[in-house]
Write a protein that binds this DNA or RNA. Structure first.
Lengths: 345, 345
DNA sequence: TTGTAAGCGTTATCAC
DNA sequence: GTGATAACGCTTACAA
């Protein structure tokens, strides 16, 4: 049996199982060479209109779909970006993911997702995997990786940070207006006449946690006695809340760095029979979608988490397609006043 | 040549200064042929131990990472699965994604994410893209695709449905105990002495919506007058809730098919000055994580959304590695009694 | 304007 | 045991 025969046999066997048409099939059908077919389908200039038409109709009739795998191997571009977060199931990251996915989809990119499970080691492993996959870009909400480690893991892959930043690294960053939001909440409490304001700070491994606490301290209204640094969880908020409430010289208002911390504080207050806002006022950075329905409804700083992902994606698309200077984008926040601060419903 | 191309050229040039080690490099360094190197690294049997060791050390010292692209092109396996949902930012899908990602990661698979934005056409497009990418499997929470369309789009790609099912298609499905959960809630209300029970049904394009409504109707306690079919949103729940509340012969209890619908009903009740549970009782399928903190706290059916994704992933891994019969897995639900039903806090 | 041929980095099939 | 060699499906100099 000649080689040619074997090839034929094999091709037929494959065809029967994977009726996927290849570029060679299209070319044959159109009576041109593969290169011409490729050029036609990629819209290269300088082709006889008739040729192009023939190729296009051949492709259509065979339902040809080019293999991204082969294409990427050849061109060294994958049209894929890696998305790495500490925890996809968190509402914030989930929303950011949606925004990013939308924007990237428009630009023709696919999203390869990695969840680092709040674990720096996994995060590094994820980055290495993504690098091996030759992703064209990286969207990264780091749980605390250093600029050097990043550089080592992904070399020159364009990277945009969001929510949390590894100082000095990357081709851009998208962050919330943390300082402004904190200021808004603080001023509002001060407007209600509060002087002793407690602060529930979030994890200091993340930019949001750091910036919010910094802003609070910089305000001149901070008393270290009333500051509690927690993880971003309801449980932690509750524990810290109980401490705050059990202080004999209790603060008259609480600023929580996140919705979870605020919810934790509410739980603590309920446990101690402390009424909000009569006995202690509460405001929160983060406006959960059910904020209106809590008792009392929650005064909070709101923002569009989706937009964070979208903006980051936009920055990345830019960075991938042209040399750009690293830019920092701030996503705006607004104050939503409801009853927990002492305002009337 | 476009700007974009030039950027890529430059980047590639940069990369060429520190070229990624290829299998050929490893082979050369170890003084063997590429095929031998390949065999060594893939743990094939029948190699001189010394050869294997040499290859391994060469690979290590060059920090060799095989190119998944090239490998996939050759082997026709991508170690990638597509994950398609109507909306990643919904807490349920986000949690399922996390569970799936975890399980798939363990098994060595990557996750390519597609958000169909609640749009059947996009869903189809997503499936085609995924098929072109030769994903090894598909995790699909469909927004309403037919078995035929699925078959046409992804051919024989192993597919596991979760949350929502296209009847008869796929290699498995993971669904909640919808009927049991509905029964639990209903019985509980009946136990409180309610006779006229209203039902807020969710979208009938999805299995969860359908099964919950079906279970309600099958209970013999259903009065069509008190049934409202909605989309899964707070707004829809509110609208339907207002209708229910404005009925002169108002039902004395409401069973909401989802947390969103329950929240919508709470908003409606607040607007009308109707007290829960004194004037009307409320229970919900879905226990939102802040259910304890609502006023009144919400009696609900709870389940582990993460587990849904995890189980689906497990089924898929099975289906991808061997011929298996299609299986249906039900994820258990439990009743959490709090105050909205009329129980004491 | 089009075709030929050389890869991209692997793995599989043969020989030896 | 190990090494040539031929794919996998595509793009792109370089020729013609």
């Amino acid at each position: 049996m000649t080689l040619r025969d074997r090839v034929w046999q094999r091709r037929n066997r494959l065809r029967n199982r994977f009726p996927k048409a290849t570029l060679a099939d299209v070319a044959e059908r159109a009576g041109v060479s593969p290169s011409t077919a490729s050029r036609a389908l990629n819209g290269h200039a300088g082709l006889a209109p008739a040729t192009r038409a023939a190729v296009e109709s051949a492709a259509a009739s065979l339902k040809f779909q080019p293999s991204p795998l082969a294409r990427s191997l050849r061109t060294r571009r994958t049209l894929t970006v890696g998305f790495v977060v500490p925890d996809v199931s968190s509402p914030f990251y989930a929303a950011a993911l949606k925004g990013a996915q939308r924007r990237l989809g428009q630009a023709g990119y696919r999203v390869l997702l990695m969840d680092a499970s709040l674990d720096v080691e996994r995060e590094l492993a994820a980055l290495e995997t993504l690098y091996a996959h030759q992703v064209d870009g990286l969207l990264l909400a780091t749980a605390g990786i250093s600029a050097e480690a990043l550089e080592a893991a992904v070399s020159t892959t364009p990277t945009v940070f969001f929510d949390s930043v590894a100082d000095g690294a990357g081709d851009g960053a998208v962050i919330l207006e943390n300082a402004r939001g904190t200021g808004l909440l603080l001023e509002h409490l001060v407007g209600h006449g509060h002087e002793h304001i407690a602060f529930l700070a979030g994890s200091q491994r993340e930019t949001s946690g750091v910036e919010r606490l910094q802003a609070f301290r910089a305000s001149g209204r901070a008393d270290e006695r009333y500051i509690r640094v927690c993880e971003w969880s309801i449980g932690d908020g509750r524990r810290a809340g109980l401490e705050l409430l059990d202080d004999p010289q209790r603060a008259s208002a609480v600023l929580a760095s996140s919705a979870e911390l605020a919810l934790g504080f509410m739980a603590a207050a309920a446990e101690r029979g402390v009424r909000i806002p009569q006995d202690v006022a509460l405001v929160s950075f983060d406006d959960p979608y059910f904020g209106e329905l809590l008792e009392p409804s929650l005064t909070a700083v709101a923002y569009d988490a989706c937009l964070v992902g979208e903006r980051a994606a936009a920055l990345l698309v830019d960075a991938m397609s042209s040399e750009t200077d690293a830019r920092e984008v701030r996503v705006p926040v607004t104050l939503v006043t409801r009853r927990s601060c002492g305002c009337d419903g």
